[in-house]
């Protein structure tokens, strides 16, 4: 299976990654190699095998419904580039 340069650009856009034009061909080649490996795995007969959702054959531990996190807003907001009236400020989102 081989990915086209346009598909590489689209995937990069969805993941918000910037890919320079001279990198597209190499990326297409690398990603295609990965997909080839997936194709080879797909060829293995797995009928009758339940797919796993996680590599560890374990189940989710649950947490009691209790509030354990105190308000540490000031501490967390020291990490942020811009805050105002308790809000984190980000570049304007245009809908």
């Amino acid at each position: 299976m081989s990915l086209s340069p346009d598909e590489v650009r689209r995937i990069a856009h969805l993941a918000r990654l910037s890919v320079a034009d001279d990198e597209v061909a190499a990326n297409a080649n690398d990603l295609s190699n990965i997909l080839d490996l997936v194709d080879r795995m797909n060829a293995v007969d797995t009928s009758g095998v339940t797919p796993m959702a996680h590599p560890q054959n374990a189940t989710q531990r649950l947490r009691p419904d209790v509030v354990t996190e105190p308000d540490q807003r000031e501490r967390y907001q020291r990490l942020a580039p811009a805050v105002e009236r308790g809000l984190y400020l980000v570049p304007r989102v245009v809908e």
Binding site: Y88, L89, P91, R92, V93
Partner: peptide, 15 residues
């Protein structure tokens, strides 16, 4: 929640 009004052209985020 995103608040779009009145932050000098920025968007305010309340999580």
């Amino acid at each position: 929640k995103s608040l779009h009004e009145d932050f000098h052209g920025m968007t305010g985020i309340d999580l």
